[in-house]
């Protein structure tokens, strides 16, 4: 009987080429990093169960789940607002995977595993805002979209979740994008197109930033 291996394959595996892309005569203005193999669970409060869910979330994660478009992080998890009465739980290593969260929340919420439905791309660099201005209609100026701001929005008519992470040690802004897996390759090409003039440094990581 044949042996079967079940290696996960990122939706960006085919298209992502590690290294430099685009303009070479400038220091890379953009870093694009794909984060692979994460757990992502959507939690939607049931009717009239908002307060119970909020308490359960606080107990589980040690912090309140966002009720407005924000992302909040603890050491092992990020909670991202994704719409009224709902948020996403982003983590690694199975600690907040579907089966575990189901037990904690199924009394008050409906859970849907989105771990494989998205690709996670982190955009940083001096030109991150200039490049994202070509993709996103949002105002990403620090005054309007500070660290921790999140949005459910669209790029190229495709739904994405976008949030601003903590700045890098050198002060550069970091924007995280969750894009639908089947659109990921197409959006990746669009992002490269937008970033090429600034010089791009491409990589991937198994770690959440």
């Amino acid at each position: 009987m044949a042996e079967f291996s079940w290696l996960p394959r990122s939706p960006l595996e085919h298209v992502l080429v590690v290294g430099a892309y685009g303009a070479r005569d400038v220091a890379p203005g953009i870093s694009l990093t794909e984060i692979r193999n994460f757990d992502l669970i959507q939690i939607m409060a049931r009717r009239g169960k908002g307060a119970e869910l909020a308490n359960a979330a606080k107990a589980r994660f040690g912090m309140a789940a966002p009720e407005v478009p924000k992302a909040v992080s603890a050491s092992d998890v990020t909670l991202i607002w994704s719409g009224p009465d709902q948020f996403l739980v982003l983590s690694k290593g199975g600690k907040h995977a579907m089966d575990i969260l189901s037990q904690a929340f199924s009394q008050f919420a409906s859970l849907s595993d989105q771990s494989h439905a998205r690709a996670l791309i982190s955009v940083s660099g001096m030109k991150a805002c200039a490049m994202l201005a070509k993709l996103s209609s949002l105002d990403l100026h620090p005054a309007s979209f500070p660290i921790g701001a999140a949005a459910a929005t669209s790029i190229d008519h495709t739904s994405v979740n976008l949030w601003r992470g903590s700045d890098l040690p050198d002060g550069q802004a970091v924007f995280n994008l969750l894009v639908f897996a089947t659109f990921a390759e197409s959006l990746w090409r669009t992002m490269l197109d937008a970033a090429a003039e600034y010089g791009v440094d491409i990589g991937y990581s198994e770690e959440l930033g």
Partner: peptide, 9 residues
């Protein structure tokens, strides 16, 4: 039907 989590709460 939006924001129903807060119904009755």
């Amino acid at each position: 039907g939006v924001g129903a989590a807060k119904v009755g709460g």
